[in-house]
Simulated assay, not measured.
Amino acid sequence: MLHGAKIYLRPLRQDDLRTIAGWINNSAFLSEFNFFGLRQEAQMEKRFLEDGLIGAQNGRLLVVASDSDQVVGDINYHQRRYGPNDGSTTYNIGISLSPEHRNKGYGVEAQRLLAEYLFAVYPIMRVEAMTDITNIPEQRALEKAGFTREGVLRKAQWRNGDWHDIVVYSKLRGE
């Protein structure tokens, strides 16, 4: 487990799969910025049985409030490469918090903890995150978590029937 002041991150357990399944296709939970269409729950359960949803290629952890041990969301990571060699590997992270637990600093802490974990476990130089250009709360959270705004990828994301600009943030080892 990765502990912060307000939250901790932990791997999923078998009994968490029902909670996550309820979030997968729930546009109210995911918000307009994280809903990319309907997904199949069975794929997640199959992957959980294979590796617990934690691996070098990608992974998912739960965000849990420290004061209540209540699951308030999840955070994930996946590998990206900017060249053909292993040295060009980076991780991209994303987070979803239930609506009643947003704007409490949980996202800031979760993103900071996940970046620290990825730097500690993998020989990478960079962790990155992307968000919709209109998602100002997430941009503030990333900046508070120590990420630096790099720029805008124009019309890079297809979501909710339209193309959207996304803002790229990164955190480098040692920052």
Rank of each mutant, 00 (worst) to 15 (best):
R81K: 04
L12T: 09
D162V: 10
R10F: 09
A141S: 15
P99R: 10
S170R: 12
I133G: 05
I95K: 10
S96Y: 06
G83N: 08
E45H: 06
V167E: 14
W158G: 05
I136Q: 14
H101G: 02
Y91G: 03
A141F: 12
I20F: 09
S98H: 14
D132H: 14
N25W: 04
R10K: 09
Q57T: 05
E128H: 10
E128V: 11
D15I: 04
G94N: 03
G94M: 07
E128N: 14
Y82K: 03
H78N: 02
V168G: 04
T148C: 13
L97C: 12
Y91M: 09
V71L: 02
Y117M: 11
K104G: 06
P11I: 06
D165P: 10
Q111A: 13
L12Q: 06
I124D: 07
H78G: 02
Y82A: 01
G151V: 13
S27K: 00
Y77C: 02
F29G: 00
E50F: 01
P11A: 07
E150K: 13
N160E: 15
Q79F: 02
P84K: 05
R13M: 06
F36Q: 00
T90G: 06
T90Q: 06
R126K: 15
W158T: 08
V168D: 08
R81I: 06
E45Q: 06
Q111L: 12
A56P: 02
F119C: 05
A145Y: 15
D67G: 01
E100N: 08
I136D: 14
H3Y: 12
F36Y: 06
F119K: 07
F119D: 11
Q157H: 14
S31A: 05
L9Y: 10
W23N: 05
V64H: 01
L97I: 14
E32Y: 03
M130D: 11
L153P: 07
G83A: 04
Y77N: 02
V72A: 00
E150Q: 14
R102G: 09
A5N: 12
I93A: 05
F35C: 03
Y106W: 07
F119E: 08
H78S: 05
V63W: 03
G174N: 12
Y169R: 09
M1N: 08
A129H: 03
D69A: 04
H101A: 08
L38T: 01
E45F: 04
K144Y: 15
Q57P: 02
N34T: 05
Q79E: 05
N85H: 13
N26R: 03
N103P: 10
A156M: 14
Q40S: 01
T148D: 15
F36L: 00
N25M: 01
E175H: 13
R126N: 15
T131K: 06
S68T: 09
F36K: 00
E116H: 11
G146F: 12
G59K: 00
G161L: 11
R102I: 15
K144D: 15
W23S: 03
Q43I: 04
P11C: 02
G52R: 04
N34R: 04
D16Y: 10
D162N: 11
